[in-house]
Design a protein around this nucleic acid. Structure first.
Lengths: 348, 348
DNA sequence: CGCGGGATTGCACAGCATTGCAACCACGCG
DNA sequence: CGCGTGGTTGCAATGCTGTGCAATCCCGCG
């Protein structure tokens, strides 16, 4: 005896009404006599019936499913972002369907690619696809559009003009400039920027703006690019950049991500014995929760999680025929203890 | 003109075949002529068709959806656990449907409760419900069972005997003992355990075993219980337990969670100026990735994420009629730098 | 050339819920 | 007492795919 899901027909039988009546009893505003509805609800309760949303979705023009494509969900900032977003969706009555782009560690397994991830989500008829990771080729955006699904890109490269995708970007260039000015004000003269190899333009833009601003002050920046967006990348960068006998004598590091910056800072402090911020200043980007911990006190460029989540939700909830939007999230610098005090006024 | 999802009928029309043929072309092992299948696939490709899994699920006895109920997804250990689990599910062709138990911060909003979360997932006809957070009342387990859905409980209180729920538990009692022995071996005499208010028996069991083992050595343990499972809880505990003039002069703290332990350790070190491990030893539970960072080097009881994920996956994949199982995950102590060196042999 | 048999294919129904439409009920008013 | 009206309710079609069953086709063999 295998228990099956209870169906509306079961409830109808038990309540002595038609299947339609059951359906209406669960549809707010439908025309049902109060006592009929009560009888139906009672039967449903007794049987443990709930509406099958999958079947219901066959009728509705949009499902309640929001597909989220992410990777690196263990990352301190990304996990916080994902947590906030999924909670917000839920509060709106939407459901989170996750595709994790994390590579399968088993030998012989192929890495999940973005194209397949999107197709997967389309198979589930999601109403929106949110991209937290990876860069969407225009072709994928078009694929979604062809199925009436909007894409929401968070800190991702913008797609071709006219593509059906909402873009949400924190001010990467502004943040990069903020970081550069702050390090320069601290008196740093030998700057380095550490970034991961991923193609995401947001991180590139942060680094580029940092370099450009440094150039305006007559400084050149050592650019260290390697590996994924991870703590270990910061560790490796610090080891390589700050190796003993390094002629450059780097005194200011900008990590395009808090996790990278923390890896670099911790390695400098605890492994290489360099005082932060006296000998070396470090600045990050994101303001992940752990950056404020007293073990780190990382000065960083904050992109407000609240604002980011609110903008994302707004994009997801916008009507299907709304024009494509572009939302910018302001950033600001949160001063903690990883950068030397500013000497004199900040450069303009 | 609103683009709709492409259906099998559209493809059939274009390929000049019946709808059944389309269905079969997408069903491995079905009886279709090779060139028919080719024609169908070509038409599908041109139209951007993919099978509607929602409709397909109406037929199949089990869906590909696995519901995960979690909270505190920003937590360093939980996020890593969730990341690993969702990636593993995906590699098996299953899809993750998340319910986030995190309370809605907006005023007037009600906290999402576990019962509603389970009902939500049943509405989507998930094949399994995985509980990463919260304690499942027997009644909920029964509700799932009535709908033919198994529950998988991870480090959650075991339900009533005979309930249709697989249980996966790391050895909380063993871990608690391990922690106590190690602190005692380090010469600590004034012990404290810090735990959150949540009812989850796993954390209680860790604390209880710790206290029992300490009692065997003739020591009593100060028990500090307050707030959620968070960094701030550890901070508050340290401030209160280690306040100046505290007559007990606590010299060993066990945090039932790495995040709690880190909060306590950081506060002792950086805010209260107490040397760890010279003046105070701290030990955690989980072995979250950040615990190994050089800024922390927290000695902790490890529950292997790999083993935990593998056991969870095994439970999810077990056939619907399999007997209920109980899987235990071994724990071990990972020595880092937050506990003073052991003096002499460890107590038995 | 007729027939048996395997491979294909279409029909129709199943699976679950929603909804337009029409039937139906009771009731009040002229 | 007849009829209009508003509220209920059931029928049947719809949305989309999977699949048992029977019809069909083609091929080879006697």
């Amino acid at each position: 005896m295998e228990p099956r899901f209870v169906t509306a027909a079961d409830v109808a039988r038990r309540a002595g009404v038609s299947r339609s009546a059951v359906s209406r009893a669960f549809t707010p505003g439908a025309s049902v006599a109060p006592e009929t509805r009560a009888r139906v609800l009672e039967a449903a309760e007794a049987l443990g019936y709930r509406v099958n949303r999958l079947a219901r979705t066959l009728h509705r023009d949009r499902s309640d499913l929001v597909g989220i494509i992410g990777a690196n969900l263990g990352n301190p900032y990304i996990s916080a972002q994902f947590d906030a977003l999924s909670a917000a969706l839920q509060a709106e009555g939407l459901q989170t369907l996750l595709v994790n782009l994390r590579p399968d560690p088993r030998p012989g397994a192929e890495a999940p690619d973005l194209g397949r991830a999107v197709e997967r989500l389309l198979e589930y008829r999601v109403r929106t696809v949110v991209l937290l990771s990876g860069a969407a080729p225009d072709e994928l955006v078009r694929l979604c559009a062809a199925n009436g699904v909007r894409m929401v890109l968070i800190n991702r490269p913008a797609p071709a003009a006219g593509a059906l995708a909402d873009v949400i970007d924190s001010d990467a260039a502004g943040g990069g400039r903020l970081a550069a000015r702050r390090l320069i004000a601290a008196g740093c003269r030998q700057l380095a920027v550490v970034l991961s190899e991923s193609r995401t333009s947001a991180k590139l833009a942060r680094a580029d703006a940092f370099c450009a601003e440094a150039a305006r002050a007559g400084l050149t920046v050592r650019r260290w690019t390697q590996g994924p967006n991870s703590y270990e990348t910061g560790v490796a960068a610090a080891r390589s950049l700050l190796a003993e006998g390094d002629p450059a004598r780097i005194d200011g590091i900008f990590g395009v991500t808090d996790e990278i910056a923390l890896g670099a800072m911790n390695t400098a402090r605890h492994e290489l014995g360099l005082a932060v911020p006296e000998r070396l200043s470090v600045i990050g980007f994101d303001d992940a929760p752990i950056s404020g911990w007293s073990s780190h006190r990382l000065t960083t460029v904050r992109q407000s999680l609240r604002a980011l989540t609110a903008a994302t939700l707004e994009a997801i909830l916008s009507p299907a025929d709304a024009a494509v939007s572009h939302r910018a999230i302001a950033v600001d610098l949160v001063e903690r203890g990883s950068v030397a005090p500013a000497r004199g006024p900040a450069p303009t």
